[in-house]
Design a binder for these strands. Structure first.
Length: 148
DNA sequence: GCCAACGTTGGC
DNA sequence: GCCAACGTTGGC
């Protein structure tokens, strides 16, 4: 899962313990949070638009897909006037802090590791803020970061 | 700041 | 349903 560090960083997650992953307004990402993510699933926390971008830590899903109520709040940056509270369009999950990686793993290092070939994050033009990661790739990233 | 990639919108 | 215009993402 990607987050811009100016908006919400791994340190913010560590401080808060857990958070609503609100504000996602992309159907593919919405569907993954709604359909695929289960309590206990582990998440790589990726600061995007960072210098450098990369994987900073690990979180776990602690609440499964439910309506992103910020979509109905006209004051919210991600307000969507077209979503119907009776039939919510945007969903989110809650995630809990697990760990910071002892060593931050920059995007450049991910790209340089042949074991990560095929990872969705490394595809050209990949903009999805929520993406699947295979077990093998996940464990490889943890190894690179000095965990497990 | 640039720009490639890609999603969304809206006229037809 | 097509597709041009436009907006956003995000690495560099």
């Amino acid at each position: 899962m990607k987050s811009e560090p100016d908006v919400f960083s791994i340190d913010d997650l560590e401080r808060d313990g857990e958070t609503h992953w609100d504000g996602v307004r992309n159907y593919q990402a919405r569907s993954m949070m709604r359909d695929d993510m289960k309590v206990g699933d582990r998440v790589l926390f990726y600061p995007s638009n960072a210098t450098p971008p990369g994987v900073a830590g690990v979180a776990t899903v602690c609440k499964e897909g439910y309506p992103d109520f910020t979509a109905w709040d006209p004051e919210d940056k991600h307000f969507d006037p077209k979503t119907d509270p009776e039939n919510p369009r945007w969903m989110m999950v809650d995630v809990a802090f697990e760990a910071k990686l002892p060593r931050f793993v920059p995007l450049e290092a991910l790209r340089g590791n042949p074991a990560l070939e095929g990872m969705a994050l490394l595809r050209r033009g990949q903009r999805l803020s929520v993406q699947p990661v295979s077990r093998e790739h996940f464990e490889e990233v943890l190894r690179m970061g000095g965990l497990a």
